[in-house]
Design a protein around this nucleic acid. Structure first.
Lengths: 248, 248
DNA sequence: CGGTATTTTGATTTAGCTCAACAGACGTGG
DNA sequence: CCACGTCTGTTGAGCTAAATCAAAATACCG
């Protein structure tokens, strides 16, 4: 009784994305924390950036690598994951164009505490941490915007701790689906399609459960017509009910 | 075979702490993110602060309260906890003198996402968020210091997510004990005494487990001579072994 | 010294894990 | 365009870590 068909995700065509100076400038201006910067200064920041193109599944940096660059997603998606010695992995964040990653801190650990990998082909800007800190020192609005984003991430992260500590897996997954729907969802014939390759293992790594359990729960949601899902994709049919499940 | 005696924690005597202007100024200068500020500007910041004294167990603010003030611990300890609708609680952070709390962000949620409660009697400085943001705008070094601390907290928080997702309770508690020992430990005849009222329920709320399970694990650690513990206090006898347990 | 909150410990239950086999979807090369 | 191999997802059976429930013991406080 499955409604599955071929992958409905639209693959971004970044292959011939040349990342010219002008294009980079335009993208930089779209980044939330550079939005207040006058064009002239934006141009200056731009000079300090390097653009790189990655294909799907490439590793941008590894947990433990020396951390000297701050990065910004220009196009595509990136996931941040931490790996344990035993090979288990925990998915820490899924990033969109405009999001920065790589720690903006200079003190303490100067190695990355997580691994960054592209989930789709992607274009990434890099700027030396020292240069970025200089920009923040010169333009407080940039520093404040970065602080606000970091604070939001801290709050999200704490909410996740709360969920891991108090909610059963079903509610955690329901909540994750709603969150992903809000962030990556696009209206579609199938409902709210999550525009992101999303495997059962990814879901499990986000919810702190096993792929088998994630699969069972997704099957149940599908039976209840809350979602439609296939290999590496999920669409939400009844967000309100998922939200109710996650909260109740 | 217990080595228990009366509470060995030293109770800070803040009762007659008057928080005079001079004393406040001295304390402000000790706060990490004001350290780079010249005395003159410190004096100016000081004028915008209010000092308050709280006795043990008082609530400073509640989850959901409108968030207009940023706070700094001058003396004593404060714990941040989130509460679920069902009454379960999750302990998010334990604060020391010099730590700030209450979200330093203006956008989005302008209500506190956690409850702040004193664990000992405490002296707390408050400054209006808008005033603090103005200070950060004027003195980038303050903004940068706040950003660095927030980033550290985000990393700690993500590590905790990883532990909740991948480690069994015993390892999580061993890790928490080591961390608390490093942060709040004081050398003592009993070993490394954690200078903080710390119940089994607190430990459980930090480890995402039940008080009963926390108690069983602490009993086991005590049998193995790794810790000495009584009602609301814990001393670490063998930090190296606890660390080994948490990592292995 | 009595009262209360905390801690310990036992007995039972259960959510979710692990292991394992199978099935469906996708890509690739002929 | 089809056949094959591989990777992803599904589902069952059994097991286990930890939760829950409950009672007893201990520490602290007035």
């Amino acid at each position: 009784m499955s409604d599955k068909r071929e992958t409905p995700l639209s693959t971004p065509s970044l292959q011939e994305h040349h990342c010219t100076v002008d294009l980079r400038l335009e993208k930089l201006g779209m980044v939330p924390f550079f939005q207040d910067l006058p064009e002239e200064q934006l141009r200056e920041v731009n000079k300090k950036c390097t653009a790189n193109h990655y294909s799907k599944g490439e590793t941008i940096y590894r947990q433990g690598d020396s951390a000297t660059m701050l990065r910004v997603v220009v196009a595509g998606n990136v996931k941040l994951a931490a790996h344990t010695l035993e090979g288990e992995s925990v998915l820490l964040d899924m990033l969109q164009p405009g999001d920065f990653f790589g720690n903006p801190t200079a003190r303490g650990r100067d190695v990355y505490s997580e691994t960054a990998e592209t989930q789709t082909s992607a274009c990434i800007l890099s700027i030396r941490l020292s240069d970025f800190r200089e920009v923040m020192n010169r333009y407080p609005s940039v520093a404040m915007a970065v602080l606000d984003i970091t604070t939001d991430r801290l709050n999200e992260s704490r909410q996740r701790i709360q969920h891991l500590s108090t909610l059963p897996v079903t509610k955690r997954i329901a909540h994750i689906l709603v969150t992903l729907g809000n962030k990556f969802g696009e209206k579609d014939s199938r409902g709210l399609l999550i525009q992101l390759p999303l495997s059962r293992k990814d879901l499990a790594d986000m919810a702190g459960t096993s792929p088998a359990t994630a699969s069972r729960i997704m099957s149940q949601f599908q039976n209840d017509n809350l979602i439609t899902s296939g290999r590496q994709w999920v669409a939400i049919n009844n967000k309100a009910e998922l939200l109710r499940i996650s909260a109740k």
